[in-house]
Design a protein around this nucleic acid. Sequence first.
DNA 1: CAAGAAATAGTTAACGCTAACGCAACCTAA
DNA 2: TTAGGTTGCGTTAGCGTTAACTATTTCTTG
Lengths: 335, 335
Amino acid sequence: MKKRPTIADVARAAGVSLMTVSRVVNDKPGVGEETRQRIRDLVEEMGYRPNEIARGLVTRQTLSIGLVVPDIAYPFFAQIARGAEDAAFETGYSVFLLNTAENIEREISALDSLHQKEIDGVILCSSRLPSDELVVAVERFPAVALINREIVAPPANVATLNVNDSLGARLAIQHFVAGGRARIALAAGPAASTSAQRRIDGYRAGLRSAHLDFDPEMLEFCTPYMEGGYAATEALLTRRPRVDAIFAFNDLVAIGAIQACQDSGRRVPDDIAVIGVDDTPLAAMIRPRLTTLHTDLTSLGRQAMEAILTILNRDSGSGPLAYQLDPRLVVRESA
Amino acid sequence: MKKRPTIADVARAAGVSLMTVSRVVNDKPGVGEETRQRIRDLVEEMGYRPNEIARGLVTRQTLSIGLVVPDIAYPFFAQIARGAEDAAFETGYSVFLLNTAENIEREISALDSLHQKEIDGVILCSSRLPSDELVVAVERFPAVALINREIVAPPANVATLNVNDSLGARLAIQHFVAGGRARIALAAGPAASTSAQRRIDGYRAGLRSAHLDFDPEMLEFCTPYMEGGYAATEALLTRRPRVDAIFAFNDLVAIGAIQACQDSGRRVPDDIAVIGVDDTPLAAMIRPRLTTLHTDLTSLGRQAMEAILTILNRDSGSGPLAYQLDPRLVVRESA
DNA sequence: CAAGAAATAGTTAACGCTAACGCAACCTAA
DNA sequence: TTAGGTTGCGTTAGCGTTAACTATTTCTTG
């Protein structure tokens, strides 16, 4: 590990002052063309790269943002992360990745740590923080993009990006109904999740417009994983054995649901139709291929990054930003 | 966004010098118990948190590391990332996430950007850089962990962590042979990949110890995705229709292979057995359930982070570190 | 051709923090 | 007593960079 040249080394070699080099490096005016070129060559030759830390200290921006997700190993967030990082990379930003493991304390300390690092913005996915704590935590940052989390009175520095889960749920119910299903259950995911709540709303709205009654026994909360889907489906089938369709919180839950159906001797989609959410890569890989709601998560991640840039670059607080992404139903084999 | 208190604000409020506060905040000796407690209370009350940027400038360590992966949306890397971030979090480090998109220029500029950020270490996964460039790129950092990439003369600041792919391939071949298969093909993944090369070695060694001949026509390179596995398998089956087993570069390739087999009227595992690599979550979800080589990637990520810490904390260069992780065969339905 | 404008450069002072040293005041031990 | 520690704090000087001035030269233009 060799020592890096500093701006002073370059200045000395060029026989000019620090500022002249600084101006060249930052493409700022005030340096003659001849000197500018000479310094450029020297910079190249010496391999000088400005120290971002030092620069960050004085300019008060670090060109880095934080990405806080429950679990990067879950494809839903990995795809968002990919999109966000792509957009960040293109604009010269870097991304800090933090997992919360669905743990509120860890989420808080992740946010604290980002705050200490003086980052320019945060993309916070599926925050589990109570509203009041969330507002406090979020106000500390120059810009925040909240993914899949609603907030009552969003401060001017936050943008919210939500998947239109309610629409998604209505699309799913519509599809079930069009296929002649009438006993539609919901493997609802974690009760604390905003998107779960929105899907419940859409589920009920969908039933209503199909003139079907809502039966609380047909709704079961669960963890957002395969095991959760399996357990929820077992519970649902025990309570209501004649269920003929299940709308699952996400693809993993859907896969768990399918296996529970199969293990109880029911066939998918003949006896029970299943629709998932997210269209993760595995949806197309399992058999029966999973019918699911597709949302372009990579571009959701991109949009989040772009929203942060927008907030950072606008003159003053011109009202909070809110984006909504409509999912579309990808019909495969499971429904 | 309110302004943060600085160490000077705390010092002024406490009527002491900056250094006294600094010593308290960093738990260093040289401050009386009474003063110490008074400052602690004040720090708490004012919500003071040291600015990591400023601290980093003087201590020359940023408490952050870089994690460079081809694509975080690929579960293999997402799991490593999760493990690495967990370990980092526990030791007070933060993780910069960078995707290379399998693109050499982007890998280079990712590394450059990390260098400018003065990070303490890098975890570099599946680098596609040529050896000489890799050495140059890597020497700039205080500590580097190389995952799945061998390097001839590793500098003292790098640790290498490799999955024992050769062993994995031998295990797979052994399992095929034990099941009575003798025409074993290889969907080998990208020719440029080190782990692909190691698997070819293991594949040939496995064949040799089973007294089977190596047939170059039974080996087909491919992209490490489902489509690659599909295309490679089509090619293999055209050239050698009587193939009865396929060892795939990874689970995605295996899934592509299975589908190509099925689409050509062959049954898995009856006609053709398939073994994948990685044991990604979807291996247990598809049907037939995929027999695959399991490696504990989360702990691989952890180990990489720990290796960096080791390099950072040891007194001098006491020789390069090398870890190797043995996979184990998880027998499911596909073989 | 004088005088103001423009272009090109340098100086100074931060940003927030810590390493290294300085210096009293007090304690020890021979 | 007195030389030598020890404790508890303060001072100074940077880390590498840029913002905001200031100074010098050159170019206009009436």
